[in-house]
Write a protein that binds this DNA or RNA. Sequence first.
RNA 1: UCCCCAGUAGCUCAGUUGGUUAGAGCACCUGACUGUUAAUCAGGGUGUCGGUGGUUCGAGUCCACCCUGGGGAGCCA
Length: 440
Amino acid sequence: MTVEPTTTLSSTIARVRDLAEHVASNVRVQGWLSNCRSSGKLLFLQVRDGSGIVQCVVRKGTLDDDLFEALKRLPNESSLEVSGTVKADERSPGGVEMSVDAARIVGEAAEYPITNKEHSTGFLMQHRHLWLRSSKQAATLRIRARIIKSIRDYFDSRGYVCLDAPMFTPAACEGTSTLFEVDYFGEPAYLTQSGQLYGEAGAMALGKVYVFGPAFRAEKSKTRRHLTEFWMVEPEIAYAELDDVMDIAEEYIATIVSDVLADCRPELEALERDVSKLEAVVPPFPRMTYTEAIEKLGAAGREVPWGEDFGAPDEDYLSSTSDKPILIHRYPASFKAFYMKRDPSDERLTLSLDMIAPEGYGEIIGGSERSADLEFLEKQIAEHDLPRADFEWYLDLRRYGTVPHGGFGMGLERVVAWICGTQHIRECIPFPRMLNKIYP
RNA sequence: UCCCCAGUAGCUCAGUUGGUUAGAGCACCUGACUGUUAAUCAGGGUGUCGGUGGUUCGAGUCCACCCUGGGGAGCCA
């Protein structure tokens, strides 16, 4: 039911975030009721418009009595427009409030399932489409958007070309992880796990590129660090060697953190993030080889046999030794991808790197220098039992003007989780896709 | 895929050794209150105890299997 206003709504529409600029003027806010408190002939409407929440004070008598009563009974998350004079007021949660002189109920809500009290994660995830309205979730999504802008700005301003890799692929890029199979006109095809190989083709054409898009992995992972659909940023740079790749990764991550600190203070505050932890993320980051990391783990009583990958608890230990991200390089070839270049000084090693985020957020970057050698890659494809025919185009990149090159992949949601201080990455993407979870 | 925990009102949970009619807070509804901050105060109980089968005189409670959710491992970004 729509209740007509007793007076006209202001023609000046303002965003809650900007209300401080409108003190003493009459503006209209378009939003949703996040909560309502009443005290006799006063109503305190907490109105949310996506940019913030403002307290709107309604005095009985200033509006039509029917409208006043309707507002008093208005369920949370009903949509409404209010207008009135903006005032600075210390008693108001935002420091600014509106003295309402006109209002219109746009859509009265049914009883809203999410309350100010506790809810289980399972319940909130089932209502993800509504949970996004909560202040912490909205803050996380704003920071995610800022991080995406920072990523694009970083590469665009340094001569990289954004290169969109295909989502449908004929075969596995890395051959190991589980693939989502789709029916492609009667033939099997797969959703991409990584755009990297296409990024390499792009780097040979354009010099420096970055692939930015979703990746799909049908791993039956059930941890706070995994999604079946996640977003990945993959720069690929012609003529870059391992040390160049590490320098870029370091500068890039530091820039993202610095941009968020500069532009997202209210969001970080809403998330109760300890910003001093982020302010410490300044180059240079500690670097160690895989072998040095194994020794460090061994000295701490955590024996990992040389040649085996670290487990998540091992990574957490290593990251706990620094308040910055750490770079670990030169992993053994035994558990790394087929296309990585070997270390000329020790053929057992790859010229690879991982970056591990502080505070136990795990691996956020994995990358390497790629092998530029045709014969080596032919042998690797055979040894890894990969379908040679599907990789002929990739081998062409070595046949026609091969050069040293390298790059890395960054998992967006893991970076968002780390910067926001969010325990589980499912809250760092609007609609997470996880093992057995595809609704809503 | 493996290990651990949980499933009782719309939500979060309690429910003793198996024993009569199933309990609380919040949400919600009604009323009071001219400055509330998750407002407060008074009144109101809304239920296929996850499902199926079993043990028993009797099952929310015990057993088996299944389903769903949560935490962790492996794997990864």
